[in-house]
């Protein structure tokens, strides 16, 4: 008996987690997939209608806005966070004195949840409370900064808040990469008469390729998940002008009794994530061999 226990203990202990994992992750993914093929509205119901929900989804202008927003957000967020993070890392790598303190300050936003970031920026960008009021109080009476309440610009406020939160993290990634560069390379380049710009552009940045790659994958993943930031900062508004697909999915599944269409949008998002993740995992795992 004791022998049996000893032999199988690891399996017995791990079994519940494995089961929970299979049921909660893959089980529910499968369930959502099935739901997206049904007529479900308020409650799940099992009348299959093929790809009808997907057709309705793509015909919905609100989904169009959400997808467009995702692309705007994804591209701007990734590019700005990468450039800013890289510049901060290069700046910190110049052997400056208070590096430790500055690094902590830059990294700190990463420790805050998106809800807090969203709320804080909601106040900062609010015309009646934040930047606009500050500048008006300073005497610039005509100053206007009301992106938060402008349906064309609201999505960019989400970019600002997300960049603020994530660029410190990107900086940490690049800083680690820069620290790994052989000191003698810099020395050799100096003897070769390279200016700082040429040194970074021709020698150091090409060495950062793997870091760019990891940073892009991580940022993509943050961007696709940033449901909570939108919820806290703009609530998807004004109107639905700053919705992202995740907010669309939530609204349709739980507020507007369209579970079938919500499930369809969830599946489209899953495929989007997989399209990014699979090539990444593939290349990562292949390198290990």
């Amino acid at each position: 008996m004791l022998n049996y226990l000893e032999k199988h203990l690891p399996k017995i202990v791990l079994a519940p987690t494995t089961i929970v994992m299979i049921v909660c992750m893959y089980g529910f993914i499968a369930w959502t997939g099935l739901l997206s093929l049904t007529k479900s509205r308020m409650m799940p119901q099992w009348e299959f209608v093929g790809l009808d929900q997907y057709v309705r989804l793509f015909a919905n202008p609100r989904w169009d806005v959400a997808v467009d927003n995702l692309f705007i957000f994804l591209i701007l967020f990734i590019i700005i966070a990468l450039v800013l993070g890289l510049l901060l890392a290069i700046f910190l790598d110049q052997k400056i004195r208070v590096e430790g303190a500055i690094r902590t300050i830059y990294l700190y936003p990463m420790a805050i949840s998106f809800i807090v970031t969203g709320t804080a920026w909601k106040w900062i960008l609010n015309p009646g409370l934040g930047i606009e009021k500050l500048f008006r109080d300073l005497g610039f009476a005509g100053f206007e900064f009301r992106w938060l309440v402008d349906s064309d610009m609201a999505i960019y406020t989400i970019v600002i808040a997300a960049v603020w939160q994530s660029s410190g993290f990107v900086m940490a990634l690049f800083l680690a990469g820069l620290r790994g560069v052989d000191d003698n390379l810099t020395k050799a380049a100096k003897i070769d008469g390279a200016s700082t710009v040429r040194l970074y552009w021709h020698i150091i940045l090409p060495l950062m390729r793997p870091v760019f790659f990891s940073a892009i994958v991580i940022l993509t993943h943050i961007a696709i998940k940033s449901f909570d930031l939108v919820q806290a900062l703009t609530g998807g508004g004004p109107g639905y002008s700053s919705d992202l697909p995740a907010n669309f999915m939530y609204t349709f599944s739980f507020n507007r009794a369209q579970i079938g269409m919500g499930a369809a949008s969830a599946m489209i998002m899953l495929f989007g994530v997989l399209a990014v993740l699979i090539p990444y995992l593939y290349s990562e795992l292949r390198e290990k061999k």
Partner: peptide, 12 residues
């Protein structure tokens, strides 16, 4: 100058 670790530019 010639270094012990060669210090060749790896991407070139």
């Amino acid at each position: 100058m010639v270094f012990q670790s060669y210090a060749l530019y790896p991407q070139m």
